[in-house]
Write a protein that binds this DNA or RNA. Structure first.
Lengths: 204, 204
DNA sequence: TCGTTGACTCAACGAGCGTAGAGTGAAAGT
DNA sequence: ACTTTCACTCTACGCTCGTTGAGTCAACGA
């Protein structure tokens, strides 16, 4: 019935591992670390639970592999470095960091955002996920803080990052009715002045 | 060694139940629903696990009792109703709602905020906690939306509420270094213009 | 062609969990 | 004083979990 086209061994292994990782990401993102069982991941991947262990060692390692950020497959990345405070074009740089922050909102439920959702879903209840979350948020705070000229740049950057965290949690994880079916541009439009106010560079 | 002053039965029962509830709140707030075991709660309360079941029926019911909001023991409450949009003093009403929102920040880790933390900790991974969280957030959104004159009042109110959720999560649950030891007034001061911007009533 | 590798399954273990029922002993009611 | 109530403990069941080791069979290298 199912036509398995007899793939070479290495390829078959790669695909199975990817299928397990996808299933793991999906389940971790939906139910969190504790409720997503190895058995459920295996069933979703059409595989024996023991195989998951054999490939990934432990549930914890599977989680880390499922959550780790893939280094930008296809999109622009890395080059976005702004290069320190720029007293001349500070105004423009601040605008840009606001836009970049707002850009982290969508991710449209794409492949690599699944791993982000998996991390966010478990960050409050699973210690290792909390470590990952603190690291990821810390990096974003660093990036934002670099662009802010104010004295309390890190605090402001943290608050800006947490604003977006709160909206993402309410939207993607709690799925509040108030945000359902609201286009991301609308959310970004309403959030923009709010984030600008947090930069301390707001030209009133 | 321990002097038990032979209390009457009813009093003894009340205190034991309260001790269990306190232990449950603390553990739920610290580790979330799944990792906080009945056995650990019982041990923390100095009691047999079976007693917890006998008093509360099930872990789920214990959680609901631990999380349910106590009707304001000592503080002013309820009377804060603003009473619908007020076209005349809209400006003042908006200011007040911003202050009220900022007032939800502190809670200083007091007794009743433990139950709130317990709910927040589990809201992403425990379905029943998610229901409670959606209800609590929905109520706050309603209250805020009533005061906002804008057409998209509910959406704006939701975003304002989520801003504070994000900050609370980062501060109380993830315990980000950037917010540690920052006095709440400082956070409120930085957040105030940001929330005002979300009201749509911002007088630039 | 034959031995070896390696992807994958089967069956089971030990531990920890929520939960149940019978039991105990001191306080309360009469 | 005798019975009843009730706060509380002991022991254990059944389930699910992560994890393990032996086994199977097709793809591979010589």
């Amino acid at each position: 019935m199912a036509e398995e086209t007899a793939l070479p061994r290495a390829e078959r292994r790669r695909r199975t591992e990817a299928r397990i990782l996808d299933a793991a990401r999906s389940l971790f993102a939906d139910m969190g670390y504790e409720r997503a069982t190895i058995r459920a991941v295996a069933k979703a991947a059409g595989v024996d639970p023991a195989l998951v262990m054999q490939y990934f060692g432990s549930k914890q390692e599977l989680f880390q592999r499922a959550v780790e950020v893939t280094p930008a497959p296809g999109g622009r990345s890395g080059g976005g470095q702004v290069g320190g405070p720029d007293p001349g074009g500070a105004q423009a740089a601040v605008e840009e960091v606001v836009e970049r922050l707002l850009g982290t909102l969508p991710m449209k439920l794409g492949e690599l955002s699944q791993s982000r959702l998996a991390m966010l879903r478990s960050m409050l209840t699973h210690p290792e996920a909390a470590v990952s979350a603190r690291r990821a948020l810390g990096e974003q705070i660093d990036r934002v803080a670099q662009t802010l000229p104010a004295e309390d740049a890190r605090l402001r950057a943290a608050l800006m990052t947490l604003v977006l965290l709160g909206v993402t949690v309410g939207h993607q994880l709690l799925e509040l009715d108030e945000l359902r079916d609201v286009p991301e541009e609308e959310i970004a439009r309403l959030l923009r002045p709010s984030l600008r106010a947090l930069t301390g560079q707001d030209p009133r």
